[in-house]
Design a protein around this nucleic acid. Structure first.
Lengths: 114, 114
DNA sequence: CACAACCGTAAGTATCGACTTACGGTAAGC
DNA sequence: GCTTACCGTAAGTCGATACTTACGGTTGTG
């Protein structure tokens, strides 16, 4: 659980990302979040459930309230994957650039010859 | 254009992420990608369109073929946002941790008193 | 000038998903 | 105990979207 797929899918929705960003400022209860957002409380509840199963937030009961909080582990894992992916992509990109430059050099020689 | 929303949404789909990851190894044509994947060529074409408008890949015509390639800029922008977000989230998290520790200390004193 | 290779788009379909209202359940205040 | 506050889940609805097949358009090849 809490794989990349769920994390990306969770952050893909605008409202859910909004919820997540508000939580980044500090822990909040469900009702508080719902008051700040243009959706109903159950909608926020469902979004929080998705974020939780993605490993991005944690839940804590505080009396009758449900306080949600960001889980740095989820973000960190996502960031780590993105970093690793960034390396291979950049390498492939630069390899392609140098390959193209060689071709350009050939063309250069050819056009200079005529 | 090419905002975070489009990038996250693009990477949220499993097939599209698969396409993107194959492209990370090096540039490929549409047909090549379709051969390696369990979907038809038009489907791949549509996914590439989404990735392109998200700023994650670039297109290049090579004869009758359409070669797609990763655009490091898109990934970098995404990574930058995640990094910035990571900072604020971690700060809020640690602030919450120290706040909780204070409360725990109070409880500690109280229980030691009885 | 056909012919073939390669591809994007249109159109249709079926599933997914984000939202709502309605309901039930648990903890705090009087 | 009874009410109030706060919340999660169920059920239903409607739009988004990920696929498919069908079609047309452009570029190399004989």
């Amino acid at each position: 659980m809490a794989d990349r797929h769920l994390a990306f899918k969770a952050l893909a929705d605008a409202t859910r990302r909004e919820v997540f960003e508000r939580l980044a400022a500090g822990p909040k209860a469900v009702g508080e979040l719902a008051d700040e957002l243009p959706v109903t409380r159950p909608a926020v509840s469902q979004h929080l459930k998705a974020l939780k199963s993605a490993g991005l937030v944690t839940e804590r009961r505080e009396g009758t309230r449900r306080v949600y909080q960001i889980d740095p582990a989820g973000l960190g894992q996502m960031r780590a994957w993105l970093d690793q992916f960034w390396d291979t992509a950049l390498n492939a990109f630069q390899a392609e650039v140098s390959r193209t430059e060689k071709l350009d050099a050939k063309h250069e020689r050819r056009s200079r010859r005529k």
